[in-house]
Design a protein around this nucleic acid. Structure first.
Lengths: 208, 208, 208, 208
DNA sequence: TATGAATGAGTTTTCATTCAT
DNA sequence: AATGAATGAAAACTCATTCAT
């Protein structure tokens, strides 16, 4: 019965794919929910059940998709960072001068976090807890390196004066973080473009 | 029996005062202990018993001096901030120009937190939790105002060019925070003086 | 439409019978699987899903054939005991003297459990839990009665001396159990035949 | 103030001792309670809270005295086995011939378990669970060795005929276990003395 | 009929807080 | 005032059972 067999095979494959898609959907629903509630109350003050409630599912269902509360956090982080990386590298393609590139880099990050403000808060609280510190540090380090690279390219191209780059990289990240936080709290009255301009100005003034 | 009455009154007042002094002593011992252990493991991961142990007293004794674990945190924060305020205002008295004053302001804060690094960590983690956010925000706001005042005085005295001051205040606080964190983590290779110079330079370059 | 009716009746009966056969098959597949996994990890430490997996079906399917995990256990027990009963009575037919019959009885039981070692373990753990105790006790009681009967026949036939029989019946069961357990654990260095001989010898020595 | 110091030291020592005594008392209360309820429903089917309830304390209090539910079980086992060992070795001192010694050994064990029937049940259920098997096996092995020693001494003294001893040791333990179980269940109509006599008779008949 | 995703009651353990001593 | 034993609410996680597909 080759025909029958083939049909059944095909349909079982189809079912499998659909199942996987559903599972992926659920996972991302849970991640989204987690971002919301972790951010609202912090990681430690959020019960696994709160995440489930926010996702509109039962407590137990969480554990069908993740091994632990911690694993949910990690997945959420991973998810957001991948998105951010992609967004930044995409936007940077259309920028050439160091100043432009810096503006794009800073502005994109601010937009992203502004849209995902809660996630940002979550990283800022959870990421400071002992067992997550390394992971968070690595993520930030990566961004600093990107800024430094951007500056060094500017120096090589003669756009910027020869000066040590390292501290400026960190400073830019510090400023982005602060502004993000205030924006999330509704305490930043300026626009993202203004902030990006401000930070870029400050950073590049160092190289004049 | 007036004589007796008087004597007894006096001695009872004396006893009362001594009692209060003893109580204040105990309170500050607990606060010191709390700063140490909260900072080492964060607020949520520290048990009330850990605080008691560090203070060399029994668990139950904590509750004779504070209403709750939370109250201990608040007292610790209050205490540290008062100390910082006093230190900064004392040091500022010997500084006159805006640049000097900024250097002193930044440097003093960095020294203070560097000596109390753990406390700083604590504020950074606990302070971001919802129910503490307002309190933390107020504390930071206060510092920003101080920087802004300092800058405006510089403008009035003609040392700095007329420019909006607000964003720079926040920026300075953001930079101080970042450097503090990295220093606590052992990730800041520069000296406090260098950092203070760097921040001051960046901030004042905005007014040239 | 009698013809049609008849045809349809017949075919529906046929279908019904086939359905029942299929259901019985499934039930016994599940039982077999249950014996394997319950025995390997005990009743409490085995999840319904483990049984399903072993049976190569889905979790939910279990509940089409059994009301509960407990019901599966009971069915498995019933099944095994029926098998054992049949095996023993078959083998006993070729044995005549009390000694022979005892040897066969003991030996057959040991062989059976040895082949189904895991099941034996399961009964020994699960069967001791309160709600299963009565059932297990009844099963053992049945065996004891069989031994006692066997002994009384020996007495009647003059092969054995007149002595009370009851305690020996229990003793034989106790000894079988112990040796079974040790064999399952790999701690019994002797053969089944030797064990059967040992137990028979001890039991019958009581009647000399 | 040596006198004062001394007094205070003494009283603090006293307090310490009393505290330890109280703690020991609590521990044994918990152990007793655990024996009761574990035995009644088995280890897996008993919630930690049931133990606490039986002991007349709160759930959390358990964990002041034991690290885990499992630790309670182990302590209970340890406790009982120590008691049994002591009791048996004490009673054996007054017995000389192999027959007497066997009777004492068997009888003492039966008395002990009969008084602590629930504990016995517990060991029989919990002890068969995978992760406890080794511990239980070791305990039984110890007893078998004792019986074997007892028999070998009898052989050496010429009271018993030279025969292999090992299987009899196990058999005696099997018989004791069975009778114990039935007595706990109220299904053993004979007295302990009668049972001990029966087992001794059977065991020694092997050496005639 | 068969599936397996979803459920939520139930389990162990922790720890802030109380209170008898 | 000081203690620390006791409490019980709360949290993470498991799994027998149900039910939409």
């Amino acid at each position: 019965m080759p025909a029958v067999t083939k049909t059944s095979r095909t349909s079982s494959r189809l079912r499998l794919r659909r199942r996987r898609e559903r599972a992926d959907l659920r996972r991302s629903e849970i991640i989204t929910a987690a971002l919301t509630v972790f951010a609202k109350h912090g990681f430690a003050n959020t019960r696994a059940e709160d995440v489930a409630e926010q996702a509109g599912i039962a407590k137990g269902t969480l554990y069908l998709y993740f091994d632990s509360k911690e694993a949910i956090y990690e997945a959420a982080l991973e998810y957001a960072m991948t998105q951010l990386r992609e967004l930044v590298s995409e936007r940077l393609q259309s920028a050439t001068t160091a100043a432009e590139r810096m503006r794009v880099f800073v502005g994109t990050r601010m937009e992203f976090w502004s849209a995902q403000g809660e996630l940002y808060q979550m990283i800022m609280t959870v990421g400071r807890e002992k067992h997550q510190k390394k992971r968070t540090a690595k993520i930030i380090r990566e961004s600093v390196d990107q800024i430094n690279l951007l500056l060094r390219e500017g120096i090589e191209r003669g756009e910027l004066r020869e000066r040590p780059v390292e501290m400026v990289g960190w400073a830019v990240m510090d400023l982005i973080r602060g502004m993000n936080e205030r924006r999330v709290d509704g305490a930043q009255p300026t626009t993202i473009a203004q902030d990006a301009e401000f930070i870029t100005g400050i950073a590049l003034s160092y190289f004049r």
